[in-house]
């Protein structure tokens, strides 16, 4: 399980994470919601140390990281084995084929034999519906295909948790759908996920738990139904702002 205690971070006077404490249950999907600039991405990125809060404690399975203390590079590497990150802008490695993007981590970090890694990579590509793209380069993929490759790349590392930072925000609705379908499938296989998204209907469908951040503060931490039926004025205002009405 991943949990955090009192994560705090500020950029200058701007407090982006204000004593955030919560837990992310294993084998479940937690969705982080909130208006732009509420600290969602910073929060997510501090779970795999791409962002360093000034203070607070992060528990990753049996690893404990105290952000107030210096963190050794060995601890950083160990921490990143627990999670994988899927980025809004995919961040595939453009100089490597799709297959090589996927086996890069297993072969060079986990030291998996290349043949085994390739076999698994092809299975993962099958799973995300891109078996025929193994030898393509990222530049030859649509946004939706690129993000599905990125998801396969993260799955290849067998992380306990996959962190997704607005995985469909850069995509057209049609391409968004193909990515969401893949995520739903992974969710159904009990892969632990933590997703930052602006897609409310997807959040409603996939989330076991909702976290709502506003101005760096945790405004809601609980079950999905409770969030969407909340009588809290701020949450209602947020939900209203996310729904298109004329």
């Amino acid at each position: 399980m991943i949990s955090v205690e009192n994560l705090t971070k500020s950029f200058g006077d701007n407090v982006v994470l204000d004593h955030i404490s919560t837990a992310f249950p294993a084998e479940e999907t937690t969705v982080i919601l909130g208006p732009s600039g509420s600290g969602k991405s910073t929060f997510l990125r501090s779970l795999n140390l791409l962002e360093r809060p000034e203070s607070g404690v992060l528990h990753l399975e049996d690893l404990t990281i105290d952000y107030a203390q210096p963190i050794s590079s060995k601890t950083t590497l160990a921490a990143r084995q627990v999670t994988e990150m899927v980025f809004q802008s995919f961040n595939l490695f453009p100089h490597l084929t799709v297959l090589k993007n996927i086996i890069e981590g297993p072969v060079h970090v986990l030291k998996t034999p290349k043949a085994d890694a390739e076999k698994e990579a092809r299975e993962l590509l099958q799973q995300v519906g891109l078996a025929d793209k193994a030898d393509s380069y990222p530049a030859q993929l649509s946004g939706g295909q690129a993000q599905r490759v990125a998801i396969a790349r993260s799955l290849a590392m067998h992380p306990r948790y996959i962190l997704l930072d607005e995985p469909t925000s850069a995509l057209d609705p049609e391409l968004e759908l193909e990515v969401l379908k893949v995520l739903l499938k992974i969710h159904d296989e009990n892969q632990s996920m933590i997703i930052v998204t602006h897609n409310m209907s997807f959040a409603k469908q996939v989330a076991n738990k909702i976290l709502f951040l506003e101005h760096g503060k945790m405004r809601y931490d609980g079950p999905t139904a409770g969030f969407f039926n909340s009588d809290d004025a701020r949450i209602q205002a947020f939900l209203a702002s996310m729904t298109f009405t004329l």
Partner: peptide
């Protein structure tokens, strides 16, 4: 993003 993606896979 290339650095981040590579760091994220544990490099």
């Amino acid at each position: 993003g290339q650095w981040e993606a590579a760091y994220a896979i544990g490099m």
